[in-house]
Design a binder for these strands. Structure first.
Lengths: 354, 354
DNA sequence: GTGGTTTTTGCATACGCATGCAAGAACTAA
DNA sequence: TTAGTTCTTGCATGCGTATGCAAAAACCAC
C-alpha cells in the first residue's frame, strides 16, 4: 500500500482534460460562461473536474485575462467600528459578484503610505480607500492603467479620484442648529486629522453656520480620529477658562472618547451639563452605555455606491471620476439635550423637525 | 501634440529590458534577491524600471513560483472589535514580511461557508480562520496541497489544523473564583454559539469549577456571539424566578450587550446588584462607558503566534499541526464586585492575587 | 600572456489559463 | 443524398515572470 506523502500540486485543466478525454481548451471553455462547448462534453468535463477536485487557478486566469477579480481596500482605522463596518459591507457585496478584497491597513490618516504603492503589483481591478489619501504617484499610475480609485469618506481635489461621502455640510449645519435649539451657547468641535478634508468641511460648515446664527466663537481641538487623541482634545476644550457646553465630534469613535472624559474625568452629567454629538451612527452609538446623538452616515450605502462607481468605471474606462453623496439624518439619543420644541416621536423614533 | 488616451498596459520586464539594453531574464534577476547580476547592470535596470514605473506583476510571479504571498483571512465577526483588532495585527505583521491579506467575511459562526472553498483558487500561501470552522472538503484540499490552516480562538479536532487560543480554561476558572470571592452566589453564563468549542470549553470549566467550589447550579444562555443575541440571553437570565447576580460572558462584545440590558432594561446597578465579566479585553472594555472586568486575550500575541505557525509549516511542510495557548490575565475594572481581600494595586493597576 | 576559476548573461522553456483561427462534426433544408 | 449552415473542438500562441543550462565575459594567479 502506497501512502501519499508531502504536498501535491493542485490539478490543472490539463489534468482534467486528460481524464475527460478532451483538450485543455475544452476544459477552459467549460468553465467560461458563454463559451462554446457541447452540453454533453461540458458535463463530462465537470465530472472529471469534480473527481480531481479541480479549482481554477485564478493567478493564471488573471494573467491571461488581465482581470484579477481582486479589489484593494485600504483602511487606516480598522479599530474604528465605522470602517470595520464599511469593510464588511464591501466584502459582502463584492463577494456576491465573485470578487474579493485584498486588505491594506495603512498607518496614519492623511498622507500616503509607500506600502500602498504595491497595490499595483497585485493587478487589482480597483482601489477603494477609506480615510486614506493616495500619493500622486499612485494616482497617476492607476489612471494610466485604468484602475478606478474610489475614496470613501474623504473628498479629493485630484481629478482622477471618485468620491463617496456622507452629508458633511448638512450634517454640521443641522447639528449646529440642533445644539442651539437645545439652548447651548458655548460650542466646541473636535476635528479629525488636520489634513482631513472631510473633517475640515464639517468644521467650516459648523463654525460658519454658528456664526451666521450669532455664535461667532467656536473652540476647536483635534483628536486625530483616534480615541486617545479625542480624549486629549476633550480635556483641552474643558480646561478652558470658559469651557464649552456642547461638543460636535467629527466621528462617533471620537465622541465615545469625549463622553468618557466628560463623565469620568470632569464628572459632568450628559446631557444636563454638556451635550456631545457625533457623526456616523455606528452600532455602538445605540448602546445604552453611550446612547450617542449623532448624524448618520450609512456604511451600507457608502459601500454600495462605491461599488457602483467602480463597476461603471470598469465598464466605461473613459468616464471621468464621480462624486456621490449618501444621505444621512440626525439620530436623536441621550447624549445631547433635546430642544423643547419641534421634537416628535414617530414609530418609537425621535425626530427633530424644526 | 499627441495626447495619450485610454488605459495603457503596465510596463513589463521586457519593456524594462529593452530600455536597459539587457535581456528579460536579467531584469527578473535584478528583482530577485540573491540572484546573479552585476552591480552595474542591476543599477542600470533599476533606473530603467524607475523611469518606466515598472512594478512586478505578482500574478505572473506567483504563477511561476507557486507562491502568492497572499494569506487568506476568514472572519465571521468583523463588527466585534476583537476580530477587527486581530485582523489589523495580522495585516501589519504580514505586511512586514511582504505579504497581504485576502479577506473573506464568512456568514455565521460554526459551520463552513461554501464561499470559503474558493480560497484555493487564489493560490493563497496559508489560511487563517477566526471563529470559523472549515468544511472537511476544504481542510482535505489544503492538506493535500500543503496549505497550512491556523484557527484563531477556536479549537479543532481535525488533525490537520493548527490552533492559537487564549487560556480558555484558566480564564473561566479564575473568573469563577473571583466572582465567588466577590460574594456572589447565583451564577449565570452567556455562551457564544452552541457549536463553538471555545465557548464550550469555557462553559465546562466555569460550571465545573463552580461545582467543585460548592455552586452546582449555573444558569446558561446563549448569545450566539452577537450583540442582539447576548442581549436576549441576558434577559433570559434575569427573567428567572431566582435571577442571577453574576454573569460570565464568553466575549467582551456580548458582555457589552449584557451591561446594556442590565442597566437600561432592569435598572440594576453594576457592580452593586450584579457583576458582569467578559473575555478578550478589547480596547472598548477600558472605556469608562463599559469599564468592563474581563480576562484578556491579547490580539497581538494571537496574531504573532498564528503567523509563526504558518511560517513554520511553510518551511517544514511535513510537520504536524500545532496548538498554542497565549497567556492572558484577569483585568479588574468596575463591572464586577471586588473581593475584600487579596486585591492589590500595583502601578495603578488592580491585581487579584488570591 | 596563458590557463583556469568565478561571475554574469542570454536562451529556452515552464507556470496554468484564455482565445483566434481553422478543421472537423453535426445538423438543416431541399 | 448533397450542399450549405451552424456547432464543437483542438491547435497554437500569448499573458509576464522565474530558472536550469550553457555560452560569454570578467577576473585571477603565475
Amino acid at each position: 500500500m502506497k501512502r501519499v506523502k508531502g504536498p501535491q500540486r493542485a490539478p490543472t485543466e490539463t489534468d482534467v482534460a486528460k481524464l475527460a478525454g478532451v483538450s485543455q481548451s475544452a476544459v477552459s471553455r467549460a468553465f467560461t460562461p458563454g463559451a462554446s462547448v457541447a452540453k454533453k462534453t461540458r458535463e463530462r468535463i465537470l465530472e472529471a473536474a469534480k473527481t480531481l477536485g479541480y479549482q481554477t487557478n485564478l493567478m493564471a486566469r488573471s494573467l491571461a485575462t488581465r482581470r484579477s477579480n481582486i479589489v484593494a481596500l485600504a483602511i487606516s482605522n480598522l479599530e474604528n467600528p465605522f470602517y470595520a463596518q464599511v469593510a464588511k459591507e464591501l466584502s459582502e457585496r463584492l463577494r456576491d459578484t465573485g470578487r474579493h478584497i485584498l486588505l491594506f491597513t495603512t498607518s496614519a490618516d492623511g498622507t500616503a503610505d509607500p506600502e500602498l504603492e504595491k497595490v499595483l503589483s497585485y493587478q487589482v481591478d480597483a482601489l477603494i480607500l477609506t480615510a486614506t489619501i493616495p500619493s500622486h504617484g499612485l494616482t497617476a499610475q492607476c489612471q494610466k492603467n485604468g484602475i478606478p480609485i474610489v475614496q470613501i469618506n474623504r473628498e479629493s481635489k485630484i481629478s482622477g479620484i471618485s468620491t463617496v461621502r456622507g452629508e458633511n455640510q448638512r450634517a454640521a449645519e443641522q447639528v449646529a442648529e440642533f445644539l442651539i435649539a437645545g439652548g447651548h451657547k458655548k460650542f466646541g468641535l473636535i476635528g479629525g486629522a488636520k489634513g482631513s478634508n472631510t473633517s475640515q468641511i464639517r468644521q467650516e460648515a459648523f463654525v460658519g453656520h454658528l456664526k451666521i446664527l450669532g455664535f461667532p466663537s467656536v473652540k476647536i481641538a483635534y483628536g486625530d480620529y483616534s480615541f486617545q487623541g479625542a480624549a486629549a482634545a476633550t480635556r483641552q476644550l474643558l480646561d478652558l477658562d470658559n469651557p464649552v457646553d456642547a461638543i460636535f465630534c467629527a466621528s462617533d469613535y471620537m465622541a465615545f472618547a469625549a463622553l468618557d472624559v466628560v463623565k469620568r474625568e470632569f464628572g459632568l452629567r450628559v446631557p444636563e451639563d454638556i451635550s456631545i454629538v457625533g457623526v456616523d451612527d455606528v452600532p455602538e452609538a445605540s448602546h445604552s452605555a453611550y446612547d450617542l446623538t449623532t448624524y448618520s452616515q450609512p456604511a451600507a450605502s457608502l459601500a454600495e455606491e462605491a461599488i457602483k462607481i467602480i463597476d461603471q468605471q470598469i465598464a466605461h474606462p473613459g468616464r471621468r471620476a464621480q462624486r456621490r453623496e449618501v444621505r444621512g439624518q440626525l439620530i436623536l439619543r441621550g447624549s445631547a439635550r433635546l430642544p423643547n420644541h419641534s421634537v416628535f416621536t414617530i414609530a418609537g423614533k425621535k425626530i427633530w423637525q424644526p
